[in-house]
Amino acid sequence: MRMTDLMSGAALSLFPMIGLVIFGLIFLAMTVRVLRSSNSEARRHSAMPLEEGATLARTDRTPRELASNPNAPERTDA
C-alpha cells in the first residue's frame, strides 16, 4: 500500500482535529509554566532591556587600533 492510498483512506476531518489538540496541549503547558513561575523572577526578566552590563571603560580608539597596539596610552573615564 502506498502512502498516497493510506492518506486518502484517512478522514480529512482528522487533520484539523490533530492541529487543535496539539495547540490546546501547548497552550495548556505554557499557561502552567506562566502560572507557576515566580513574580520576582518575571519582574527581573521584564527589566532586562534596561540593563546594559557594567561599563568598565570608554575609549575613543577603534577596535583595529586597540588590536594592533593595546598598550598605547588612551583616555579612560571608567
Binding site: 546594559e52 557594567a54 568598565l56 570608554r58 575609549t59 577603534t62 577596535p63 586597540l66
Partner: peptide, 9 residues
Amino acid sequence: QYEEVVHQA
C-alpha cells in the same frame, strides 16, 4: 572618533 564603551560581565 566614535567612542568605544568597554563593558564587563
